Computed example of a mutant assay.
Amino acid sequence: MSKAYEMKRPAYDAVARTLHWLTVLLVAMQFVIGWTMPDVHKDTQPVNLIAWRLGAGATLVAVMTIRVIWRMTHWPTPDELRPLLSVVSRITHVLLYTALVLVPLLGWINASSRGWTVRLLGVVPYPELSEPGSAFGHEMGDVHSILTWVLFTLIGLHVVPALFHRFVLKDDVLQRMLPRAKPSRDQV
């Protein structure tokens, strides 16, 4: 490994890294399922891909709840970015976390308004967040759709700079969130 990529600061802990990559997996699943599932209409039933989307969304709600609590109680090592980049990074992270909480929450509200039960892992039912037939719940479905595109934009504003750090600045910003490789015998 070249000197440019050596870790200068501690990596995020294993829990933070696991929650991060689990979130990535769940959001990717939601995108693929959402893109391929049939359109939802008044009489649509939550079966097949729609059921998978509800389950992945319920899991994302649980993961993000744990992730927010973990982040609030386990602060990462401060970054060593220039002040302006540090502010932009923090704002982007706050907006990203906000969208990662709001988008599935709004989907849950919309599902409740359709009379669908949202279940964690297909077993544990979540409470209804709106009455079946609720106009508010249906409107939140529209907001959910719009905020999904905002979320994808924020993900881009997160990924592109991470790749810029890795390949242009050649610092360790991206490596802090990657699984840590065990040192080889030559490195010990």
Rank of each mutant, 00 (worst) to 15 (best):
Met37Ile: 03
Thr98Phe: 14
Val88Ile: 15
Asp13Lys: 01
Arg71Met: 04
Val118Asn: 02
Ser89Leu: 09
Ser130Glu: 10
Val159Trp: 02
Ser112Tyr: 05
Val168Ser: 08
Tyr12Ser: 03
His41Leu: 11
Val173Ser: 11
Arg114Ala: 12
Glu80Tyr: 01
Ser112Arg: 03
Ser112Gln: 04
Val150Glu: 08
Phe136Glu: 05
Ala56Glu: 02
Leu147Met: 15
Val168Thr: 08
Val143Met: 06
Leu49Gln: 15
Arg71Pro: 00
Glu6Asp: 09
Leu49Phe: 09
Ala62Gly: 05
Val103Gly: 09
Asp39Lys: 15
Asn48Ala: 15
Asn48Asp: 15
Val32Arg: 06
Lys170Met: 10
Glu128Lys: 11
Leu95Thr: 04
Met177Ser: 06
Arg166His: 15
Asp186Met: 10
Arg9Met: 12
Pro76Cys: 07
Leu102Phe: 12
Ala62Cys: 05
Asp13Tyr: 01
Leu178Gln: 04
Thr65Phe: 15
Gly115Thr: 07
Lys42Met: 13
Arg17Thr: 01
Arg166Phe: 12
Leu96Cys: 06
Val68Gln: 08
Gly107Trp: 07
Ala181Met: 14
Trp116Met: 05
Val173Pro: 00
Met140Gly: 04
Val118Thr: 14
Asn110Trp: 14
Leu60Ile: 02
Asp171Lys: 04
Thr77Pro: 00
Leu129Lys: 08
Pro76Phe: 08
Asp79Leu: 11
Ala4Asn: 02
Glu6Phe: 03
Met72Pro: 02
Pro125Tyr: 05
Val88Lys: 05
Leu129Ile: 04
Asp39Pro: 12
Ile155Leu: 09
Asp43Phe: 13
Ser86Asp: 14
Pro132Ser: 10
Leu96His: 11
Ile91Glu: 12
Arg166Ala: 13
Pro104His: 05
Glu80Phe: 00
Ala4Trp: 00
Asp39Phe: 14
Ala28Cys: 10
Pro38His: 11
Val87Asn: 03
Glu128Asp: 14
Arg67Asn: 13
Gly107Pro: 03
Gly122Val: 09
Pro78Leu: 09
His41Trp: 05
Val173Gln: 12
Pro10Asn: 13
Ala14Gln: 13
Val63Met: 04
Thr23Asp: 03
Asp186Leu: 14
Leu84His: 07
Asp79Lys: 08
Glu131Ser: 14
Asn48Arg: 15
Val47Tyr: 10
Met1Ile: 00
